[in-house]
Design a binder for these strands. Structure first.
Lengths: 201, 201, 201, 201
DNA sequence: AATGAATGAGAATTCATTCAT
DNA sequence: AATGAATGAATTCTCATTCAT
């Protein structure tokens, strides 16, 4: 019984390796099979087709991401501290999972069929978490109430995705976390309550 | 003489239409030829290959984008006003060029070979402009000097790209500019000089 | 002991259902296994391979066909009456066994490997019966003696197979037996003794 | 211009050879390409897909068949003489085109998708001809008027198809035309006007 | 006896690019 | 300059059969 799960996992890991080297289209099932040490046909016992295998990757990885993130947030108080931690962990996770980063950022994130697929929802676990923390901050009076929380989420995810994407496109040659502090500052400053807006109007 | 330029342009416009409907890989030269009313072979008189044609698209479009942006910035004073204008125009441009938006955001922006290509540099015209304005703001004492301008640029481009990408993936069903004001506020607030940071430390 | 026979029969019935929906090649062992509520491997305990299972169908069905035909011929006297009965029963049998009809008429009847197989001989039970009746008719002076009985058999089987095949290909939308009477008349007329041939020569 | 037609014909002739050796499914495009001395891709310039190529065969062949049949019927008077000639030519044509015979009789004639396809109609040219001659015979009082002409057609086509099919399945080892005369006699006798039926009632 | 996971060969089809006209 | 016919490499997926349990 768990033998099937182990083999499935082995195939997914081979798939992450292979898909991260090139496009979905340019990656071949036969190479994945070789890496996983199974016959090509075996892959089709576990996944409906190539796309199904592809989309199964983020399901597994997001589960891992969220579980770890939860641990890292334990014991942290204060909305801004939590947001800083999320930013830190986000960058840390992709720094330590560069292959998955390539697949997620450079392929899935911009794929219409991925957005339409059911697996896309698994990513919601994370964005919902961000939402919850922002709301909490508003209720505590730390984040401006007049701000649109959807836009706040877009600000945070926007800079994070942009940072990771740039890093990947530049060949992962520099340290993704180098500017973590400054990015956090900018984000937190942007969304923090202050009389600035009133003055500027 | 200009006949050649017109035909070249006709091919590029057909290419924008075709590439915007699907992936680079799923788009075919033959369909572009049909739309442009030329033979397949003719395309190879104007472009080295499929990729060359693909990468020629942003060269033309960025030229158009920058030219217009320049006009829109005329007469505007104040760093923040300029940044707000840039954000406005960026969203406006992609709202009115959705086909190009799809090609640029969902394909080129995440393509390693595009980043390596010469044509990628044509996009620098825009990012350099953003740079210049940020620097100007620092010199005028409006933007904090301690902030990393690369990160500032990433904040601005990050949220803009995220907003446009989301809009595209959601099927362009809502108004991309709806939250332009709130997004500008967040960005400007984030990068503006204030004593907030000092206090929070 | 008879448990084995029951399971074997269950598999054959599932096979008739599945094979009748599509080609031999397009039908899968796995679907037959599902319908028969057994594992794929189990089928190979009862049949050597897919073809063996396929060819086992007419063996069973012809046995059924001949047994019933015998009953229907009981008490009938006169060669032509017997032939009319055979035509009637042939059409009746395939009308009431359309799935088997599809498999036999549209697949097996035109398959070289079926003709070569041993199972093909099981069909001889029927054609031999037709032979016997024709010979009987010749001896009784009702059927011309100068006629080639092989050709007579081809006339009878030809029209019957054609009628059933047409009916199947047209989607079994009309009543296969509608023209039974007229077809019988033509056949009987064709083979009956008369001075017509002499006159026409 | 006619170069294209010649190449198309070359492909069809290669297809007849290849398809006649085995099933449609077991025949490969690559072998057809080899025999036609063209690249595999070239076939797809002339035919939409494998099935389209397959179904194009009878269109060409039926045209040839009908053209020649017309010539053979020239100058023949009398319905029965015409029917005898049709039977003769039918057997003659398939005797001299055994490869096409295999494809038409053992595959297409029993294929539902063929019956549904447009190309199926090209066969109507022949069956319509048979119809016309039967009607003519009825009007001339040579063929019984009370007989259903659809059944008459089924009698004729039935025995012909049966004869050819049998011959093919037995490995084309005997002379298909050997019993042409006797088969004609039976058919003509069956459909001819006589008082037999009245007597038998 | 029954199972069902694993196998792996095999084939249609697409399409960027070339080059003779 | 323009054409468009020809090319042929490259890959997903299916499924009968086996065999360890």
């Amino acid at each position: 019984m768990s033998k099937k799960i182990i083999k499935r996992q082995k195939i997914i890991e081979a798939a992450i390796e292979v898909f991260s080297k090139d496009t979905f289209q340019n990656s071949s099932i036969s190479e994945i099979a070789q890496r996983a040490n199974v016959a090509e046909g075996t892959i089709y016992q576990y996944f409906r087709n190539k796309e199904d295998l592809f989309f199964s990757i983020p399901v597994e990885k997001t589960r891992e991401f969220c579980k770890e993130l939860e641990l890292h947030l334990q014991g942290i108080t204060g909305t801004f501290n939590k947001i800083r931690k999320i930013i830190w962990y986000y960058l840390y996770f992709f720094k330590t999972n560069p292959e998955y980063a390539r697949t997620l950022m450079l392929e899935m994130r911009v794929s219409k069929s991925f957005v339409k697929s059911k697996t896309y929802n698994s990513l919601r676990n994370f964005t919902d978490k961000v939402f919850a923390i922002i709301k909490e901050g508003q209720e505590e009076g730390i984040i401006r109430k007049d701000v649109n929380i959807y836009i706040v989420r877009q600000l945070i995810l926007g800079i994070l995705e942009h940072m990771v994407t740039r890093w990947l496109l530049k060949g992962e040659k520099y340290d993704l976390m180098e500017y973590y502090k400054e990015a956090s500052d900018l984000v937190v400053h942007g969304i923090s309550y202050s009389d600035w807006l009133l003055k500027s109007k």
